[in-house]
Structure formats: structure tokens, C-alpha cells
Amino acid sequence: HNGKLCKLKGIAPLQLGKCNITGWLLGNPECDSLLPARSWSYIVETPNSENGACYPGDLIDYEELREQLSSVSSLERFEIFPKESSWPNHTFNGVTVSCSHRGKSSFYRNLLWLTKKGDSYPKLTNSYVNNKGKEVLVLWGVHHPSSSDEQQSLYSNGNAYVSVASSNYNRRFTPEIAARPKVRDQHGRMNYYWTLLEPGDTIIFEATGNLIAPWYAFALSRGFESGIITSNASMHECNTKCQTPQGAINSNLPFQNIHPVTIGECPKYVRSTKLRMVTGLRNIPSIQYRGLFGAIAGFIEGGWTGMIDGWYGYHHQNEQGSGYAADQKSTQNAINGITNKVNSVIEKMNTQFTAVGKEFNNLEKRMENLNKKVDDGFLDIWTYNAELLVLLENERTLDFHDLNVKNLYEKVKSQLKNNAKEIGNGCFEFYHKCDNECMESVRNGTYDYPKYSEESKLNREKIDGVKLESMGVYQILAIYSTVASSLVLLVSLGAISFWMCSNGSLQCRICI
């Protein structure tokens, strides 16, 4: 991952900044910058967002509201009850120091605090018919004063009620008058409520006091790749198909172990950190130390980045220098085999997901714990399936590479015959000098055995068991695999060879 928040398929997220979902939807004055928000790819909250409900109280069923919003990608904020005409018999300019803005008392931008007009609070009834052709999110509140005197001074009615009804919602609220500790300079409380109004449905408000009335509502448009994440990451000019709280993932790998919460087309989250597919040879310690064997393909974004291909070729060293050249036929066979294998694994496992966190309130801790156990169970199954699949494929890959290298080895052996000696570690020792032209003939299969047989015969008789390297004779190393990324691999195959001279070296080696 890149540690950044990015656009998702070209669409920017909605960053709530210092506000949370509650503050944004109710219209906390400190969240005025969010009022123009219309569309987004996903919503970003920060872990310690401080601006929620400015007048103390709870947004009821907040967790369910977050779940609903996680599939919303755009909205239209509109005046559901026009301020100047909807409440002619009531005062609608209630403000509070708890919702101060720029040093002055204020109130929510989407709600109206209705109080008595003169000395009376006549029963009010108002309704709205949803003609938007889509779901409408309606929010309101109920004020709970701290004393009967406060109730009387604001609403005149000691036994007030609030009723809200639609086809799918029907509740009646009565204020709970009680002494409470002071929070944000208030002994009173406000509880906030919401409902989704279906197209064509009607919502009716009736009250004799204590109503925090809707002013603006939201017509919602769903987008199934949307979601809500909690993150401290910063926004950058970048684009992605998959976003996590820790950063964007741009990967076609089937798995990731970065974060379980994802938005967009994302690899499946697994616990494993070692889900690797081999593309090189079986481990040979001396070669492995030099980083030549054991190439791997990573299938977990965050564990290993991208696929690494092994390729086969020849390396030689003689009086004229040293050089490398790919054996294109065996390399292409290996590439085709690995590509098919990788595609097979991805096809089997690479279903892209959006995974969002589930919200539970403080009273639902047991449910949250149960949900976590269920999620953990599914996660263990996914991890096991992934590891088992790759384990089985790896064994076949190792066998496949062994065969490829063996074929190259036999190709060289059949040409050199007794003009060189096998020394048991995949290397041959020449009994004759071999210049670049000679080396090329070994690589392309045109090695002239009779041409060098007499010199080889004489050297075999002279050496008589002495280690060949100390006599200045020449080696050919018969097994060799270097490691390159897919891009470098293609470039390498396009070149005939490249040279690395070893000044004054008397050794001649050709490596497979």
C-alpha cells in the first residue's frame, strides 16, 4: 500500500475532517465546509473527530445509520420544511452556546429548535410527501429539559409530546424532565432520530412541544462500492481501485494482509504473511546465498510486491572476458508455465471484495464479540484455502523447474562428451581453451567436438587428477538461474548478450 488516501476510480472521497457522521448530518456549525458535499467514492472519518452533536445527546440507531450510509455515493440536500413558512405559530430561531460559531450562539444547520411564540405553543402538524424518486433521509430531535421551569419557559406545556409517523415508522416521544450533570454547559439533553422515507411515502410530524424540527433532508443515491473508513492518512493526487484505512492498494494479487476493511475492488484479506509461490528452483544453499535460486511470486499485497520470474541462460568467462545470454527457448517455456500457473491461482482465488467494518453500540458488546468470532472463522478458512492451494502448486513448480534445468544440462553434456569433466555440482571442467566463438557454439548447439578432442585428450593426460582450476583450465557451469522482474525479464530476452569482463582471468566458464 502507499499510505495515502486516493480517488477511487477517479472519484474523490468525502473527508469529514474534524467532524464525524453525526456532526455532518445534523449540521454542526463547525462542519459548515461539508454542506456543499454532493457525491463521493467513500467517506473518511478520523479516529478522534471532535465535532459531532454540539448540544449533548445521542443519535439513536447511529450504527444502523452508518451502515445505511456505507452504500450511499451521492445525496441532494434540500429544504424539507421551509423555515419561514412551515411554522407560522412558533418561534424557530432557537440557539445555544453549546453550538457556538465564530463566538456567537448558533444551532444545527439542518434542524430548527421550535419554541413557544408569545406565551403559547399551539399543537403543530406538518407533513412531507417524498417526490424525489429515491429514498429521503429525514432527521429530527426531541429536547429533554433539566427542570419543569425550563419546560414551561420554552414550550408552555408541561405534558408535551412529539409524534412522527410514516408508512414504515411510527413513534411517540415524551420529554424526560430530570436533573443531569452539566455537559457542554447544558443540564438538558437532546436525542436525535432518523428514518428513511421511501419514494411516494408521507411523513407526518405532530407536537405540542420539545420538537427539534427537520429543516433540511437528504435524497440518497446508492453506490455499492462506497463505504466509510476511519483513517488518519492524508489525501493525495492519486487514483486506485482499492482503498484501505492504511493506504491505497493497486494490485491484481488475490490476497492482502494490510487491513480487513477495504473499499472498492480489493484482494481478499488473509492473516498469512508467507503466502508465496515459487518460480525458481529448489533451494541450493551456495546459490541461494548469491540470490540466484528460489525466486518467488508473492500473492499477498503487503507481504511480497508483485511476481518475480526466474529465467535460464548461459554465463561464460574466458580470456576475452565474461558474458550472459538467455536461453530463449527454455526461458519462454518457463515463463509460459509460470504465467499459466499464476493465472490459474488468481482465477481460482481472485474475487474482488469490498469489506466494511460493522458498528455496534456499547450495549451490543456481546453481539460485536460474536460477530468478530464469526469473521475470524471465515478469515481462517480463507487463509487455509489460500495456503493449501499455493503449497500444492509450489511442489509442481519445483518439479517443473528441475526438468527444465536438467534438459539444459543434458544438452551441454551431450555436446562436450569427454572434452570436459562433470564435477558433480552442476559444473563441467573443460580440457581445452574455449574462446567466445567456442562458447557461442555450446550455447547454440553447434559445438565442434572433433575440433577440440585432441587438445582435450592431451590435457587429460597431463592433469592426472590435479585440480583443474589450479592448472588454468576452464570450467563450464551447467545450471544457472538469475532473477529478474517481469519487465526486466522481457528486456533481457530482447538482448543477445551483455558482457562482464574479468581482467586477466584465465578461467573459461559457460553457465546455464
Results as ranks from 00 to 15, higher is better:
Ser231His: 06
Asn232Phe: 10
Asn232Glu: 11
Ala233Thr: 12
Ala233Phe: 04
Met235Pro: 07
Met235Ala: 11
Met235Arg: 11
His236Met: 10
His236Cys: 03
His236Phe: 13
Cys238Met: 02
Cys238Lys: 06
Asn239Trp: 09
Asn239Ala: 01
Thr240Asn: 06
Lys241Thr: 09
Gln243Lys: 06
Thr244Asp: 01
Thr244Pro: 02
Pro245Tyr: 10
Gln246Phe: 11
Gln246Pro: 07
Gly247Tyr: 04
Gly247Cys: 00
Asn250Leu: 11
Asn250Ser: 06
Asn250Lys: 12
Asn252Thr: 08
Leu253Ser: 15
Pro254Trp: 06
Pro254His: 02
Phe255Cys: 05
Phe255Tyr: 09
Asn257Gln: 02
Ile258Gln: 04
His259Tyr: 05
His259Cys: 08
His259Glu: 02
Pro260Met: 00
Val261Asn: 15
Val261Ser: 09
Thr262Trp: 01
Ile263Ser: 02
Ile263Phe: 03
Ile263Val: 15
Gly264Ala: 03
Glu265Gly: 03
Glu265Asn: 13
Glu265Asp: 14
Cys266His: 09
Pro267Ile: 00
Pro267Asp: 01
Tyr269Gln: 05
Tyr269Thr: 03
Arg271Gln: 09
Arg271Tyr: 08
Arg271Thr: 12
Ser272Asp: 14
Ser272Leu: 14
Thr273Lys: 12
Lys274Gly: 05
Lys274Glu: 00
Lys274Asn: 09
Lys274Thr: 14
Leu275Tyr: 08
Arg276Leu: 08
Arg276Tyr: 12
Met277Cys: 10
Val278Leu: 03
Thr279Asn: 02
Gly280Ser: 02
Gly280Asp: 09
Gly280Val: 09
Leu281Cys: 04
Leu281Pro: 13
Asn283Met: 04
Ile284Pro: 00
Ile284Glu: 12
Pro285Phe: 00
Pro285Lys: 13
Ser286Glu: 06
Ser286Asn: 04
Ser286Phe: 01
Gln288Tyr: 05
Tyr289Gly: 00
Arg290Val: 00
Ala295Cys: 06
Ala297Arg: 03
Phe299Arg: 02
Ile300Phe: 05
Glu301Pro: 02
Gly302Leu: 01
Gly302Trp: 00
Gly302Lys: 09
Thr305Tyr: 09
Thr305Asn: 07
Met307Pro: 05
Ile308Ala: 06
Ile308Phe: 09
Ile308Ser: 10
Gly310Met: 11
Trp311Gln: 01
Trp311Phe: 14
Tyr312Gln: 09
Gly313Thr: 01
Gly313Ala: 00
Tyr314Asp: 08
Tyr314Glu: 05
Tyr314Lys: 04
His315Cys: 13
His316Ser: 03
Asn318His: 08
Glu319Tyr: 10
Glu319Ala: 14
Glu319Asn: 06
Gln320Glu: 12
Gln320Ile: 03
Gly321Gln: 05
Ser322Gly: 07
Ser322Tyr: 10
Ser322Asn: 11
Ser322Leu: 03
Ser322Cys: 08
Gly323Asp: 09
Tyr324Asp: 04
Tyr324Glu: 00
Ala325Arg: 01
Ala326Val: 06
Ala326Gln: 04
Asp327Thr: 03
Thr331Tyr: 03
Ala334Phe: 02
Ala334Pro: 09
Ile335Cys: 06
Asn336Thr: 15
Gly337Trp: 00
Ile338Ala: 03
Thr339Asn: 13
Thr339His: 13
Lys341Phe: 00
Val342His: 12
Asn343Cys: 06
Ser344Trp: 07
Val345Ser: 07
Ile346Asn: 05
Ile346His: 02
Met349Thr: 07
Asn350Phe: 05
Gln352Asn: 03
Phe353Val: 03
Phe353Cys: 02
Thr354Ser: 14
Thr354Trp: 07
Thr354Phe: 09
Gly357Cys: 02
Glu359Asn: 05
Phe360Met: 07
Phe360Pro: 05
Asn361Asp: 09
Asn362Thr: 13
Glu364Phe: 08
Glu364Ala: 07
Glu364Cys: 08
Lys365Gly: 02
Glu368Ser: 13
Glu368Trp: 04
Asn369Cys: 03
Asn369Lys: 10
Asn369His: 10
Leu370Thr: 06
Leu370Ser: 03
Asn371Arg: 03
Asn371Ser: 04
Lys372Asp: 10
Lys372Ala: 07
Lys372Pro: 03
Lys372Gly: 01
Asp375Gly: 03
Asp376Tyr: 07
Asp376Ala: 10
Asp376Gly: 09
Asp376Pro: 07
Phe378Gln: 04
Phe378His: 05
Phe378Leu: 15
Leu379Val: 09
Leu379Thr: 12
Asp380Gly: 12
Asp380Val: 07
Asp380Arg: 05
Asp380Lys: 05
Ile381Ser: 02
Ile381Cys: 04
Trp382Thr: 10
Trp382Pro: 12
Thr383Asn: 09
Asn385Ile: 07
Asn385Val: 06
Asn385Glu: 10
Ala386Gln: 02
Glu387Cys: 08
Leu388Arg: 11
Leu388Met: 15
Leu389Asn: 05
Leu389Asp: 02
Leu391Tyr: 03
Leu391Asp: 07
Glu393Ala: 05
Glu393Pro: 04
Glu393Gly: 09
Asn394Phe: 02
Asn394Trp: 07
Asn394Asp: 07
Glu395Cys: 03
Glu395Gly: 06
Thr397Ala: 11
Thr397Asn: 06
Thr397Pro: 04
Leu398Thr: 05
Phe400Val: 06
Phe400Met: 13
His401Phe: 06
His401Asp: 08
His401Glu: 08
Leu403Glu: 08
Leu403Lys: 04
Asn404His: 08
Asn404Asp: 05
Val405Thr: 03
Asn407Ala: 14
Tyr409Asp: 09
Tyr409Ile: 14
Tyr409Ser: 02
Glu410Phe: 09
Lys411Met: 09
Val412His: 07
Lys413His: 10
Lys413Met: 10
Ser414Tyr: 06
Gln415Ser: 15
Gln415Phe: 02
Gln415Met: 09
Leu416Pro: 11
Lys417Tyr: 04
Asn418Met: 12
Asn419Pro: 06
Asn419Arg: 00
Lys421Cys: 04
Glu422Ala: 13
Ile423Pro: 00
Gly424Val: 04
Asn425Tyr: 15
Cys427Thr: 06
Glu429Leu: 09
Phe430Lys: 14
Tyr431Met: 15
Tyr431Trp: 11
Lys433Ser: 14
Lys433Gln: 07
Cys434His: 02
Asp435Lys: 04
Asp435His: 06
Asp435Leu: 06
Asp435Ala: 08
Glu437Met: 10
Met439Gln: 15
Met439Asn: 08
Glu440Arg: 13
Ser441Ile: 08
Val442Gly: 14
Val442Cys: 07
Val442Arg: 13
Arg443Cys: 08
Gly445His: 06
Thr446Gly: 11
Tyr447Ile: 04
Tyr447Lys: 07
Tyr447Leu: 13
Pro450His: 11
Pro450Leu: 12
Lys451His: 10
Lys451Tyr: 10
Lys451Val: 11
Tyr452Trp: 15
Tyr452Gly: 04
Ser453Phe: 08
Glu454Tyr: 03
Glu454Pro: 09
Glu454Arg: 13
Lys457Thr: 12
Leu458Phe: 07
Asn459Glu: 07
Asn459Arg: 14
Arg460Ala: 11
Glu461Phe: 10
Glu461Ser: 12
Lys462Gly: 14
Asp464His: 12
Gly465Ile: 14
Val466Tyr: 11
Val466Asp: 01
Val466Leu: 15
Lys467Thr: 09
Lys467Tyr: 06
Lys467Glu: 15
Lys467Ala: 08
Gly472Ser: 15
Tyr474Lys: 01
Tyr474Leu: 12
Tyr474Glu: 07
Gln475Arg: 07
Gln475His: 04
Ile479His: 14
Tyr480Trp: 10
Ser481Leu: 14
Val483Leu: 13
Ala484Val: 10
Ser486Thr: 14
Leu487Tyr: 03
Leu489Tyr: 15
Leu490Asn: 09
Leu490Trp: 05
Val491Met: 10
Ser492Ile: 00
Ser492Thr: 12
Ser492Val: 02
Leu493Asn: 00
Leu493Thr: 10
Leu493Phe: 13
Leu493Gly: 05
Gly494Pro: 02
Ala495Leu: 04
Ile496Val: 14
Ser497Ala: 06
Ser497Pro: 03
Ser497Cys: 15
Ser497Gln: 15
Phe498Gln: 11
Asn503Thr: 14
Asn503His: 03
Asn503Lys: 07
Gly504Glu: 05
Ser505Leu: 12
Ser505Cys: 03
Leu506Ile: 11
Gln507Asn: 06
Cys508Arg: 04
Cys508Met: 11
Cys508Leu: 13
Arg509Tyr: 02
Ile510Asn: 03
Ile510His: 03
Cys511Thr: 03
Cys511Ala: 10
Cys511Asn: 15
Ile512Met: 13
